[in-house]
Simulated scan of single mutants.
Amino acid sequence: MDGVSSPHADRRVADAVAGHWVDRIAPRWSRPYLRLARIDRPIGWWLLLLPCWWSASLAAIRSGAAFPDPIHLALFFVGAVAMRGAGSTYNDIADRDLDAQVERTRSRPLPSGQVRARQAAVFLVLQALMGLAVLLQFNGPAIGVGIASLVPVVIYPFMKRVMPVPQAVLGLAFAWGALMGWVAVFARLDVPALLLYAGTIAWVIGYDTIYAVQDIEDDEIAGIRSSARFFGRRMRGAIGLCYGTSVGFVALAAVLAGAGPVGLLGVALFGAHLGRQVLRLDTRDGRGALTLFRSNREAGLILFLGLAADAAVTHIL
């Protein structure tokens, strides 16, 4: 990586967090790479991490542990940041021509010329190696399941060219952590983990449809397909259906894992948060849609805390 190749190297990406430390204190040469990894948009790694933590919490409930394995939680955190960065870098390499046609994405490092494709590829490999180093800390079955996650990651960038709802493939990738926490404890996949995975896929489709509201007009011009375009006037109902499906599967997973009232309260509060998003969504307000999309971090943390607290209460009782 031989530095920055554009006079606009310090330009902030359109949907980044305002005043983020990447824009304020990171060395100038590193900023385009940190933006490639979405470090200035932390919501991405949160949404990748939270299903891992949910799964680890369900595994704690089933195993009778007082809390999710803290080492696993820490490894999932590092792995989520690394693999979110690697996936985003790969996505930007594949989409650099399309990104140049969309207002929100044309300021990204590749279409704006801040980084060359070869530099981005080297950076991608470094992040992937970091993710692999984390994955190798788990048991053999978890390593195998983790490697299998690369299939939807690799094909996702190309689905927006051919599928009416490419968010379904994104869901397969971003929900993968719902399998990882369970298999890291039990070295196998059981019905609760599979149900949690199904519920998380529906969650991802719902929240990414909200995210796609920002780009409906530009996507139509550029020929980019998205669930927001596909659902159109039915969007709010479709998101509500996705979220309702998510809550139903997550609740069933929690019950089958042995969760009690505290865990189910967490599921109910998670569902209430999602319902509030649907009610507040204005499909003509891109900025408001971004705020609602980001609020899924809080929704996910509510569910995690509920499930983790249930493990503690169940252990005590």
Rank of each mutant, 00 (worst) to 15 (best):
residue 234 R to F: 12
residue 234 R to K: 14
residue 237 G to L: 08
residue 237 G to I: 02
residue 241 L to E: 07
residue 241 L to I: 09
residue 242 C to M: 15
residue 243 Y to N: 03
residue 244 G to Y: 09
residue 245 T to W: 06
residue 246 S to Q: 11
residue 246 S to E: 11
residue 248 G to C: 08
residue 249 F to H: 11
residue 249 F to P: 08
residue 249 F to Y: 14
residue 252 L to K: 05
residue 253 A to E: 06
residue 253 A to S: 12
residue 255 V to W: 07
residue 255 V to N: 02
residue 256 L to Q: 12
residue 256 L to Y: 05
residue 257 A to K: 06
residue 259 A to P: 00
residue 259 A to E: 01
residue 262 V to Q: 00
residue 262 V to T: 15
residue 263 G to Y: 00
residue 265 L to S: 13
residue 268 A to T: 15
residue 269 L to W: 10
residue 269 L to R: 13
residue 269 L to G: 06
residue 270 F to I: 10
residue 272 A to M: 15
residue 272 A to S: 11
residue 272 A to K: 13
residue 275 G to E: 04
residue 276 R to M: 02
residue 276 R to V: 01
residue 276 R to F: 01
residue 278 V to G: 02
residue 280 R to Y: 00
residue 281 L to R: 01
residue 282 D to A: 01
residue 282 D to K: 03
residue 284 R to M: 03
residue 285 D to T: 10
residue 286 G to I: 05
residue 286 G to D: 08
residue 287 R to G: 13
residue 288 G to E: 03
residue 288 G to T: 04
residue 288 G to R: 03
residue 289 A to D: 04
residue 289 A to C: 08
residue 290 L to E: 04
residue 291 T to V: 13
residue 292 L to I: 14
residue 294 R to K: 15
residue 294 R to I: 05
residue 294 R to Y: 05
residue 295 S to R: 15
residue 295 S to W: 05
residue 297 R to E: 13
residue 297 R to V: 15
residue 298 E to C: 00
residue 299 A to V: 10
residue 299 A to R: 09
residue 300 G to R: 10
residue 301 L to F: 12
residue 301 L to M: 11
residue 302 I to V: 15
residue 305 L to R: 01
residue 305 L to I: 14
residue 305 L to P: 01
residue 306 G to A: 11
residue 307 L to F: 08
residue 310 D to Q: 09
residue 311 A to L: 09
